[in-house]
Write a protein that binds this DNA or RNA. Structure first.
Lengths: 354, 354
DNA sequence: ATTAGCACTCGCAACCAACGAGTGCTAACA
DNA sequence: TGTTAGCACTCGTTGGTTGCGAGTGCTAAT
């Protein structure tokens, strides 16, 4: 057992400090108001006087975990405060069994396609968290072509069909100049199935471009046109991100000021940045993480928090989901919600793959 | 020529009143501030005294075209005022040739699929109008099946392919219990192509359900499963609405107050309501219209305006586009922007159909 | 019919005082 | 030596007062 600390230090916290920091963050998370020493002893009926707490809070401020919005008003957690809270203090609040059941049930209804499932996920997260719910579409390296089919349609047109390992069919139509000849078609089809089955959708275009030479000699026009069409695949992937429940952020007191609100909504429209944030949140650690506002960020957004988690398909990381809200978020509930949801999403997606 | 009016009347406006109403609305549209009598004579240097204008404005208020936000402050247009302005007063500000060119050019880049085109439209509208841009997806009755293809995939799976008259291919996969027999497949395929080609996508499900009996006897299992899959088509249509540029609304002074902003953003998330509004706007008239806030609306939203237009494919109305912003909008520019864009969208979509 | 003049209204910003929540510090206490 | 009570002080918030200015409606003169 470590010797009891009696000296204040800037590096690590004593039991009392931890307790008080915990109380402050908790209180602030629920009330959104700066919390003073008296409030702490009352709400958490500690066996301490306000003055003692006051001293401890002053220390916590010195150490950078708390912050005064102005001289002589209650304290508010800093980024570091949240960070410490999330990492060491909070009791993760597991979902109840019935909540888990409901989520599970919710998903079992929605097994059509991976996209639908993920769209639904963002919806569910928004609903359950009262924050903005985010779900990234499947990583394009996770989605692999399983089979090509070429089908003549009408006279001069060719339907190119790709079935992926999630059972989704992508299809597009190529306009040809000359009518299709069946034996050429078969050759091309064999060629595609032989060389590109198993290729991740994300790298299909490059993959094909690099092997273009091999085939061009023989069946120039047909092949050329077909490959041009295949080149378009990635765009046809559709949106990479599903987002839901943004309006709920208006409820939060921190977004009552227009500036803030505008910033956040601006961010929410920039899907690339959003994904970056999720990715950054999850970068270190075990793929489940909390991101707090301006922790080493480069974007001008203050005062947001994110809880994110990677979902895995067949054991492989395949995408991200999460919720976004004000920095002051009920992390203790949200982490379990998000992580558990990620697990379920992963399981159902895995079930979809063949 | 009608005899000059010398008497005030509540029914129709004299030349002076019209002029002044025009001035007030114009001024308010650009400045967003209540406009007083003096401001009118100054900004539009009329040969009248403020007092005279004052009287006229009082009359206009009696007639319900103007409104005072409080006793003794400038006037603001009422719904009726906007309505009169839009219908009788404003000079539609045609797009310049270069603007038209740019729009046209913009579209010619995006000829992939109808959905892409419409997504792009909402984007373009948002950009050009500085309001929220909206584009409804193609009417499901406009999209007609042109050809079915059934393709065995692997062992027990069947890909169902539908090409529509826009060249878009819809495809889904049915899991079968028994391996596919080729001759059954051909029969089913012929049946589908014979009976359902030309059916609008929107009514396909019903159409098929009603003719289910005819086929079941012969090839029960295969047919059943296939039709089940086809039943899902409408959901696979994806979102019915494309929306863009909502953030820009934050710039508008009328949405600085949180209440308003929240209301509008709430509305923007309810795509069904949005479509209703567009539809209502366009219901009467020639399919091009302006909708002003609470004109006979049932939803609790105040203070919005909409400019909408129907786009036609092969002469048939096929969907709606429009912009949404505060009631105080530069209608004279926006109407031409929206209507012209609708024309172009229609033309390009028509080009897509085969 | 139009205009000038004038008293009046009302929102808005500035200022002020009172209040109260909360602090830091000091001195007393266990 | 850590804890507590007491107290003076800070600072945001609230509510009331005031003055200003934009704009009006009305009346009387043109």
């Amino acid at each position: 057992m470590a010797p009891r600390k009696t000296q204040k230090q800037t590096s690590s916290l004593g039991e009392r400090e931890r307790e008080i920091l915990h109380a402050v963050v908790n209180s602030y998370i629920t009330t959104a108001e700066p919390v003073g020493s008296r409030a702490v002893v009352k709400r958490f009926n500690m066996n301490l006087s306000a003055a003692t707490v006051r001293n401890a809070m002053a220390d916590l401020e010195d150490m950078g975990y708390l912050q005064q919005v102005h001289t002589s008003s209650g304290r508010v957690p800093t980024d570091n405060g949240y960070r410490y809270y999330v990492d060491h203090l909070m009791h993760v609040q597991e979902l109840t069994l019935s909540e888990k059941r409901r989520i599970e049930h919710d998903f079992s209804q929605k097994l059509e396609s991976a996209d639908d499932l993920l769209r639904h996920t963002s919806h569910l997260l928004a609903l359950a968290s009262h924050q903005a719910g985010i779900a990234e579409a499947l990583d394009t390296n996770q989605v692999r072509i399983q089979r090509f089919e070429l089908i003549p349609v009408g006279r001069n047109r060719l339907a190119v069909l790709m079935v992926d390992n999630y059972g989704t069919v992508r299809s597009m139509i190529a306009d040809l100049i000359d009518p299709v000849e069946t034996n050429q078609l078969e050759k091309l089809s064999t060629f595609l199935n032989h060389n590109f089955v198993g290729t991740p959708i994300g790298s299909l275009a490059n993959s094909i471009r690099s092997q273009l030479g091999e085939i061009l000699g023989e069946q120039r026009v047909l092949a050329q046109r077909t490959l041009e069409v295949l080149d378009l695949v990635p765009q046809h992937q559709g949106k990479r991100l599903f987002l839901n429940g943004a309006v709920q952020l208006f409820e939060q007191p921190e977004f009552q000021r227009m500036e803030q609100a505008r910033e956040v909504f601006g961010l929410l429209e920039e899907h690339d940045k959003l994904i970056d944030i999720l990715r950054k949140a999850v970068a270190d650690g075990d793929g489940r993480a909390v991101f707090i506002s301006s922790e080493n960020d480069n974007l001008g957004i203050e005062d947001i928090g994110v809880v994110a988690s990677t979902y895995k398909v067949n054991g492989e990381p395949a995408g991200l989901i999460g919720v976004l809200g004000p920095r002051r978020m009920p992390y203790s509930k949200l982490t379990s919600l998000v992580h558990h949801t990620a697990d379920i999403v992963g399981r159902f997606l895995t079930k979809l793959t063949k």
